[in-house]
Amino acid sequence: MSNPALELASEAGEQLARPVPADSPLAIRGLTVSYGEKPAVFSVDATVPARSMTAIIGPNGAGKSTLLKAALGIVPRLSGRVLAFGVPLAQVMHRIAYVPQRASVDWDFPTRVIDVVLMGLYRELGLLGLVRRHHRERALACLERVGMAEFAGRQIGALSGGQQQRVFLARALAQDADLYLLDEPFAGVDAATERAIIDVLKALKAEKRAVVCVHHDLATVTDYFDHVLLINVRRIAEGPVASTFTAENLQKTYGGRLATAHIDQLKLPAA
């Protein structure tokens, strides 16, 4: 091993005063969240580059979903600042679409697929705005983008897990946002759904929007994403996938939980 003190000094140097780029769709500074007396997320910084696809990676219980929810203000934070497009996030919520974990809702709820997608238009419709033809057509178009148009009238409880995830994505598409935050969009979905979702996300990126996913499948990181944030309660590393998604950083993030043999099988970027 080389001189660890030197390595650490450079690491500390990198952490020196991280300015917030004004064009960053999402910049998190010093975010701490705790449930009870153990921090779930401790003093995490992150800077999502514009027009990027970012993965938040870390072991189970590392605080990935919590980071997302706290950034959005859905769970209270103990400290920290969150900026979106250079201003406090609360001021630009209308430019942000959030896709919660599929398992976070009761799919037995009495409603249809199209109604869920229309929920994405809440900000436009307000309390009493009528759902007009063009709203319905937009919702249908969003369903079409995820390949679910013919399921519009279906009761949501009758969908497979992958289909439910596609409906959630369609609802986010209906929001027509500039920043998409997705919590484990690929968890427990079939291969066809995974392809459909990643195609939509890549199209969003091509439209110059930013996408951030909490992600758990290390094998697909290099294929899907260009920016990565590795956390385990604390920020371990952040940067372009090519330079950051390395065996060493993964080992730091996952500790003993990730066998070296496993890392060897990953498609890591060429050093």
């Binding site: 919660p100 809440y122 307000g126 309390l127 929001q175």
Partner: peptide
């Protein structure tokens, strides 16, 4: 009057919070 927020927050509280 409050049909939409009621329905939305009953179905998906996290999303409802995120749309204000």
């Amino acid at each position: 009057f409050f049909w939409r927020p009621l329905k939305l927050s009953t179905f998906d509280e996290g999303f409802a919070g995120a749309v204000g």
